[in-house]
Nucleic acid binder design. Structure first.
Lengths: 111, 111
DNA sequence: TAATCATATGCGGATATCCGTATATATTTC
DNA sequence: GAAATATATACGGATATCCGCATATGATTA
């Protein structure tokens, strides 16, 4: 089971934190959607998401060409509360807007 | 004002995290009490507490020879919620016991 | 003011983290 | 099976983090 120290280290990087807040508000997203919403390189996003998966914080699922990531269903309540508190602090800002503006989103009508 | 990313980085080190959880449960403590409760070197504890002070997460106050640290009174609610959630995850374990067992605690009858 | 106790800081060195670039792998489509 | 798209990984270099040790600073007491 994940420890507070491990979770906090995972959240201490802005790429990972923004990915997680986006998952908190959007359920499930594929890598290219993170890349678009955060305007970061694909390898960078992929590496950080893989890191979160290895820690058991998120779960991935391949759907054809795409790999979707979501918060791990068994993520403990205290960890969700931590994420909620961070969300309360500053939300996800423009990120959701950029995501909504993405053309041909693979996640649409997928959940 | 402190950002989630900055707070999480501060909490990602076990020395700092345990100091903060101890402050959450004990209000105000001096450096030598942290040293005793956590069983760590004095320079190590002092440097981490100074770091937390520089970030605005804790407040220090000199009382004679001793310097007492506490959570910063203006620490935002979301940050306190994060600490509470971490506390809920594993409390402070044996740390409080070791603190209670410390002889001649400078904090006693000080608050 | 000398001695003592509490705390803070300077300095290396070891290790961890993060990134961009290039490339590898997986899946679908033609 | 070749091309196109999506994702993952390997590598090297820059930077950050953390620690122990030694020492400096601050406060009290004799």
């Amino acid at each position: 089971m994940i420890t507070p120290e491990t979770l906090f280290r995972a959240l201490s990087d802005s790429t990972r934190l923004r990915c997680l807040l986006l998952m908190l508000s959007e359920q499930s997203l594929c890598v290219c959607e993170f890349v678009h919403a955060l305007d970061l390189s694909q390898p960078r996003v992929s590496r950080h998401l893989g890191h979160l998966r290895d820690l058991g914080i998120v779960q991935d699922e391949r759907r054809g060409q795409w790999v979707h990531y979501r918060l791990h269903p068994q993520l403990p309540d205290w960890a969700r509360e931590v994420l909620q508190a961070a969300f309360a602090a500053d939300g996800v800002g423009d990120i959701r807007r950029r995501l909504a503006a993405m053309p041909n989103r693979p996640s649409i009508a997928c959940d």
